[in-house]
Design a protein around this nucleic acid. Structure first.
Lengths: 261, 261
DNA sequence: CCTTTTGGTTCCATTATGTGAAACTTAGTC
DNA sequence: GACTAAGTTTCACATAATGGAACCAAAAGG
C-alpha cells in the first residue's frame, strides 16, 4: 500500500472527480478529464452527469466543458461559517491586526496542508498569494509548522508523508529530518518562526491554537517583510499572539458544546 | 413524480446528507440527523463515516457531533474562482462601487434561488465567504427578478415552482401571476426594480448579465435605502449598470473559450 | 448496584447499483 | 464521401450499498 488517497466507495470516487475538476482551475472538457482520471469513459461520464445534475458541477453545452458548480459556493459559505475558526476568531483577529498593523493569517490543517480560513491585510498591503480558502504547504510556513508541531505522532507521520518538500527558498527546510528537528524546537518554544522559508523576504511568527485537550485546532500568525521589520521585532509581540490564540481556543471550546435546549 | 428533490444514486444521497448538515447551521449530533433524514440508522451512519473520511465533514469525538469539513472550503475557493462570475467581474464591480458609492451585489441563479457571489459595501473591505455564498429568494429581489425575466420558458417555470412566495413586506409580489406580469415588464424595460419587496426601506436597480446567445449568466445591482436616496435617483445611473453588465458578459464569454494550446 | 433507556456502532444476507467493454452517434476533417 | 475524434448509450455482470436486527457503552433511574 503506497500512501494513496484510495477513494472509498462510490461517493469517494465521485468526490475524486470533483477534485480533479477543481484542480484543473478552469473549465475542462470531457476528454481532458478522461486522460487524467483512472476511470473508464462510461464511468467518468456517469459521474460527471450525476455531479452536474446535483449542481456540484456545471456543464456548458456550448463548449462542452465542465466547471465547479455554484452549489459548492453555497455549501462553502456554511462550511466556513460553521466549521472553520474564522467566525469565532474574527474579533480577535481584527484587534490583533489593528494592534500590530501587520498581516494576520488564520489557518487550519486540511489533509497535511495549510488552509487559510481568514486573512487580514496590513495597512500597507503586502503582496502574497494567500487568501481565504487558499491552500499552501505546511512544512515551510509559520502556521503550518506551528500546527504540525503539536500533532499527535501518528497524525504527524501521515502529514509529513504528504509534504512535497520543495525548496522554495534557500532557507526552506526541505527534508523530513530537518523539519522534525524544527518541530521539536517549536514544541518547546511554544510558537513557530517562518524565516523566509516559503517566500524570500516574508517572515512571520505563528502560534498554534490548541483545545483544552491539546488537539490542534488551527494557528494564527503575524506576517511581515524583511524590508519593513525583523523577526525579532515581530517576536516582541509573541505574547500578544499567544493570548489571541488562547482566546480563540477558549471560544472554540464553548462553541463545541452548544447549550442543550 | 412529485416535484421532489429525488436524489439520484448513492452520491446524490450522500450530498443530501451533506446539505442536511449544512442546513443545520451548527455542529449536529447523529441522532438529530437521524430524525431529519429519511435514511435508516445504519445507512446514515455509513454516509457520515464516508463523508467524514473524505474530509467533507469533521467529527468531533468529544461531543460526537458532525460539522462541515474544511475540504469544502478548499473546493469552494476553486468553485468561486472558476465557476462564478466574481473574479471576472471584480474590476467592473469595483469601479461601479467606487462611482456610485452604493452597495453592489453580484448574483447568480442556483436552483431557482439567488446566490450572491460577490458584494461590495462601498466603504467596507472585501470579505469573501462572509458575504459571498449567501442565498436569497429570487421572486422578491432585484437581481433575482432580473435573472428570472430572461430565463427560457421551461427553466422559468421550474424556477417559479421553487419560489416560496412569502410576503416579506407589503410590496412583495407574492403570487406567480403578479411575478409573471412584473417579469414581462422587466423584459421590455431591460432591468428590474426592487421596490422594498424584500426588506422595508431597501431599494435597488438590477440588470441581467446575458451571454451573446441570451443565456442568463447572472445579475448585478446597485442597492440603497429609501432613507438615503430614491429609486429614481438610482435609476438615473441605469445605463452605467447596464454597461457594467455588458462588460462582464463580454469577458465571461471569452473566458468560456480558453485559448486553445 | 442492578436495570433500563438512550445513543451509537457493527453484522450480514439480500438485492439494488454501479461498472466498463463495446457498440453507437454525432460533429468535424481531409 | 470516407475517416477520425469526441461524446453518449447499452447491457450482462459483479461489486457495493442497503437496512433490519443484534450488539455495545454509557447515562438515567429505580
Amino acid at each position: 500500500m503506497g500512501a494513496e488517497s484510495h477513494a472509498d466507495g462510490t461517493v469517494g470516487k465521485a468526490l475524486d472527480v470533483l477534485d480533479m475538476v477543481a484542480s484543473h482551475g478552469r473549465p475542462v472538457r470531457f476528454s481532458d478529464l478522461l486522460e487524467k482520471s483512472p476511470y473508464p469513459k462510461a464511468t467518468l461520464y456517469r459521474f460527471l452527469q450525476t455531479l452536474t445534475h446535483q449542481g456540484m458541477l456545471t456543464h456548458d453545452p456550448e463548449t462542452g466543458s465542465y466547471a465547479l458548480g455554484v452549489r459548492l459556493v453555497r455549501l462553502a459559505h456554511a462550511a466556513w461559517a460553521q466549521s472553520s475558526l474564522a467566525p469565532i476568531a474574527r474579533p480577535h483577529v481584527d484587534s490583533l491586526a489593528a494592534e500590530t498593523g501587520e498581516t494576520i493569517h488564520l489557518a487550519q490543517l486540511d489533509n497535511g496542508q495549510v488552509l487559510y480560513v481568514d486573512k487580514r491585510n496590513a495597512r500597507q498591503p503586502v503582496e502574497m498569494f494567500a487568501q481565504a480558502g487558499k491552500v499552501g504547504p505546511a512544512y515551510c510556513t509559520g502556521v503550518g509548522k506551528a500546527m504540525l508541531a503539536f500533532l499527535p505522532p501518528d497524525q504527524l507521520q501521515s502529514a509529513i508523508a504528504r509534504q512535497s518538500f520543495h525548496r522554495h527558498t534557500q532557507h526552506t527546510l526541505a527534508s523530513p529530518e530537518a523539519l522534525l528537528a524544527e518541530l521539536a524546537a517549536i514544541r518547546t518554544r511554544g510558537f513557530a518562526y517562518d524565516r523566509e522559508e516559503h517566500e524570500p523576504g516574508i517572515i512571520c511568527c505563528a502560534a498554534p491554537i490548541l483545545s483544552r485537550g491539546g488537539r490542534v485546532l488551527g494557528a494564527i500568525s503575524v506576517t511581515s517583510t524583511t524590508a519593513r521589520t525583523s523577526l525579532a521585532a515581530i517576536e516582541a509581540g509573541i505574547e500578544r499572539i499567544k493570548t489571541c490564540a488562547a482566546q480563540i481556543a477558549a471560544e472554540a471550546e464553548s462553541w463545541r458544546f452548544p447549550e442543550q435546549n
